[in-house]
Design a protein around this nucleic acid. Structure first.
Lengths: 224, 224
DNA sequence: GTCTATAGATCGATAGAC
DNA sequence: GTCTATCGATCTATAGAC
């Protein structure tokens, strides 16, 4: 009778007591969905294509995730979880050069280890964030403003040149994420089929040198 | 009988002697298609949506552009034409600071005046450039290598710090194009609905200061 | 040249057998 | 829980009236 309570119970059981087969299948589906969503966007992705790639019947997807939008939400949740794990640490009184270098390094590494996640996020934003607006806009803005205030405090303390903190963050985002989102373009230019570790070290070095240098900071000694 | 020749004639006549109404309609369709492609990608865009936005019957689109792919090609051609007009000038013996500043300025301005074009291009690349690969890969690589060799000559002449020229170009691309491609994100962060001119001046100033500063160059006096 | 009607394929989602 | 069959909507593209 109480269907709302029943649905909550179902959802909870689904999250916690999922069977072994179901968990394996869900993982296979999310992995396949990441590839398809990154390649074709939300509208451009068909459940048929995801099902084929996951080698599972299409109805299986809809049974697990209720709808196409539900599947997309699960993929985004996966991405945001990784995102938070990688960039949640933020020290207030730490050294600007050290902190910014670590951030650039982590950002480039993330582009290397999670190119699909990075690309899906990029496409979602380019399209105006029609799907994640409600549940991400606030978190993201809080995180950004927090970061910006730290940078501003460094500037006020005379530890680095004065720049618009938000624009500085965008510059770092743009130039690092570029390596994941525009890998096709970058690979053409470098005459390669795929990146290797050396390319990512070069990327980190170039971005760090220019950004830190431009701010009047020096790269931490152990990374020079 | 000679259908190949006939088709060539048709194509030529279409390009050159197009009627007034047809030209107007084609322009309306391309403008509508730009919005839809930027919002939903190639696969995610339907001719119905384009037709509705252009306020023209769907068959009209297929009559003018032969197919969905033909329409997309026309949109891309439009974008690349603007692109070339904006960035084709490249001087060999010019001043690095002056040249790089003008380039950053032009790139940010392009993001401001042609955000849709910039976004379509970005999505195409993110998706692996499945459509424009054949007819753009070569041109783009030639252009890039040419630019990189100029930067290398500046480095060899001791005019600026040594960096990987390709990565420097990517950094500029990434950080400037970011303002068009990720406008949603940037607007959230700045707490605005749309950019104004001041935001773009700030963007130009920040990117120029950091990039030129990081390379050991000074911003041209008239722009400080 | 322009537009309506519609074919043929594929979409997301559901019903029901097992 | 899993999978087949299928619905109704929507897609690209074409045929043919005007």
């Amino acid at each position: 009778m109480d269907t709302a309570q029943k649905r909550l119970n179902d959802a909870f059981r689904t999250r916690t007591k999922a069977g072994r087969i179901r968990q394996q299948n869900e993982a296979k589906i999310i992995k396949a969905a990441e590839i398809e969503f990154a390649q074709n966007g939300y509208k451009g992705t068909s459940l048929n294509a995801v099902a084929d790639r996951a080698q599972l019947p299409k109805s299986n997807i809809l049974y697990y995730f209720k709808s196409k939008f539900g599947l997309y939400g699960a993929v985004l949740a996966d991405i945001l979880e990784m995102w938070n794990q990688a960039f949640s640490v933020a020290s207030i009184d730490s050294d600007p050069a050290e902190t910014l270098y670590r951030y650039i390094e982590a950002k480039v590494a993330y582009s290397y280890t999670h190119p699909l996640a990075s690309r899906i996020f990029a496409m979602e934003i380019i399209q105006g964030a029609p799907h994640l607006e409600a549940f991400l806009a606030q978190d993201l803005k809080v995180w950004l403003d927090d970061r910006a205030s730290v940078i501003q405090s460094w500037i006020d303390a005379g530890k680095m040149k004065a720049v618009n903190p938000h624009h500085l963050i965008f510059l770092i985002w743009g130039s690092t994420q570029h390596y994941a989102d525009f890998s096709t373009q970058v690979c053409w230019a470098l005459g390669k089929k795929e990146y290797d570790q050396q390319d990512f070290q070069d990327a980190t070095a170039t971005v760090a040198m220019i950004v830190l240098g431009g701010l009047g900071l020096t790269i931490p000694t152990e990374n020079r």
